[in-house]
């Protein structure tokens, strides 16, 4: 005998109740999930990237497989790519230095010598967005006692490392130990990199305005933020000068326009006075001039067009005045040349 199961034509009361019940239950789950997401805990819900995996791809024009190669060396690790979000996973506490200077991306890779794994090096290619930013991180970390290289205008080496700026790139190559072979490889790689990255195209005109006599050229630096402890003083070039009475620091900052330079000069002077500085009268013919004595040192502040410039922490006022006078003339000349 053939048994059958009857298929109903329309749902019954029980089925309707059950269906509504299921839908209400799903709505409840949805509501709970919606409420739960407000308690998102970033320390627990990580991106899902394992500790052993590399983070995502960078936003860089450099293609590691094309540019990163060393003669007689082989990769020791895969390329690592970092962006603003995860830069600290590579350089930890130093990330802020780069982030505050316009950091875009970083590509790193290690290489070892074919026949000697103890001889290895690591490349750090920082894309800083433009040459000003790459110069900033280069200059703020400049090593004392280093030797200049002829790779680009901004390049040097130490016993075990090479550092240089090439346009928007700031490059560090660090060797596992001092070695003639590794230094040769690092310099050859750097030349190749500069060739492939399009040689040095950008220039930094502010540097040309620093007076040349007694200038310590290696001291030239670009402070991206909070220069001299004043939070409004950003993008300030500084250079040290040797004098009989110690060091003098000269500074230049190109603002957007003349009005901004004047306003910042006034604001910086007020900041120094608020810290106990005393104004000193002078007959020097400089625009918006302020000479302030603070903590037994002298500060000279003036403007020249869109430039805010001056002398920071000089021991002897006459030396500072002489330097300020030459600096003002250089700024005038270079403004006309532009």
């Amino acid at each position: 005998m053939k048994s059958t199961v009857k298929t109903p034509t329309s749902p019954g009361y029980t089925e309707t109740c059950l269906g509504v019940g299921v839908l209400l239950f799903l709505a409840l789950i949805g509501t709970l999930l919606f409420l739960r997401q407000f308690k998102y805990d970033p320390s627990v819900f990580t991106s899902g990237i394992s500790l052993y995996e590399q983070p995502g791809l960078p936003s860089s024009d450099i293609k590691p497989e094309k540019i990163l190669s060393f003669k007689d060396m082989e990769p020791l690790s895969p390329p690592e790519n970092f962006d603003k979000e995860n830069l600290s996973e590579k350089i930890n506490g130093k990330a802020e230095l780069y982030l505050s200077a316009g950091f875009k991306s970083l590509i790193c890779r290690r290489y070892k010598k074919h026949d000697n794994p103890d001889l290895w090096l690591e490349t750090f290619i920082y894309d800083m967005g433009n040459i000003m930013n790459s110069f900033a991180v280069y200059s703020m970390q400049r090593r004392e006692g280093s030797l200049d290289l002829d790779l680009t205008k901004f390049s040097y080496k130490t016993e075990n490392a090479v550092f240089f700026v090439c346009n928007n790139y700031y490059v560090e190559i660090v060797a596992s130990k001092p070695s003639g072979f590794l230094m040769g490889s690092m310099v050859a790689f750097s030349r190749d990199f500069i060739k492939k990255a399009g040689a040095m195209q950008g220039t930094i005109t502010e540097i040309n305005s620093f007076p040349t006599d007694n200038l310590d050229a290696k001291s030239i630096a670009l402070l991206t933020a909070n220069a001299f402890g004043f939070d409004r003083l950003s993008m300030v070039f500084t250079a040290d000068y040797k004098s009989r009475n110690g060091k003098i620091k000269v500074f230049i900052s190109n603002r957007e326009n003349q009005a901004q330079a004047k306003e910042l000069a006034k604001s910086y002077s007020e900041f120094l006075i608020s810290l106990g500085g005393k104004t000193i009268k002078s007959d020097m013919k400089l625009e918006d001039l302020a000479i302030i004595e603070i903590m037994d040192e002298y500060e000279i502040i003036f403007t020249n067009g869109s430039f805010l410039a001056g002398i920071h922490s000089a021991n002897v006022l006459e030396n500072a005045k002489e330097l300020a006078f030459i600096l003002n003339n250089n700024l005038k000349k270079n403004s006309h040349a532009r």
């Binding site: 930890n92 506490g93 130093k94 750090f124 970390q141 004392e144 280093s146 130490t158 016993e159």
Partner: peptide, 12 residues
């Protein structure tokens, strides 16, 4: 003495 915590150069 400088450029920490990563350093990178023996001159640090």
């Amino acid at each position: 003495m400088s450029n920490g915590p990563t350093g990178g150069s023996l001159s640090d």
